[in-house]
Amino acid sequence: MNRERTIDTVQTRAMQATARDGITEMFLGGMLLVFGVLFYLETLLAALGVLIPLGLNPLGKLLKRKYVYPRIGYSKVARQPHALRGIGFAALAFIGVILAALGLFSWILGRDAGYSLWMSHFVPSFTGLIMAIGPWVVARTYRLARWYVFAALFVTGGICLPLFHFATGYTAVAVQTAIVGAFSLLYGIGLFITFLRKYPVTEVEHAS
């Protein structure tokens, strides 16, 4: 192994250390679960979902300060402008594909039939693809396999759920979001408990 790869390994290991606590998985899970339930109950209620991260942010900081920093130390990951650019580009590309597909269906099958086919079969798949972008970027940045699993869950869920013939595509999206959310929440709780057991509180501070 050459020196450059060793530097990268040290760096990757340090980045992964910041993701061991499971807090991100817990929050992603909680957010998706609440969003899915709201979306299932009433589509407009799901708009309230945008408020969830506002409430979770201070809670996340509190958990980090109380349970994470005393164990593995404080770290603030540098901003990744290339990752943000990647997310932006991928999201725009998907929106473009969605609009093109919707237009194509409407053009071939007529407006009503095209829209209906889109809603019942393709909305969950494209929602799954769009929701997979975030986990995929996290997986690539931190080189964490479990986030690839989340991305794959979104994509396969989106493709498979229409096979269960839900009343509308929205219902399928709500179910998909809630299932992935519940999985992520439970997994995150498991990671957090393991983290607390594995890393005892270290003696605070040092001499410099």
Partner: peptide
């Protein structure tokens, strides 16, 4: 020192304990 710099390169800032662990 190379290891310290390699860790620091990925972060905006870290504390002493984090560096110690890494």
């Amino acid at each position: 020192r190379l290891a310290i710099l390699a860790v620091l390169r990925a972060f905006e800032s870290v504390d002493f304990t984090f560096l110690l662990n890494q």
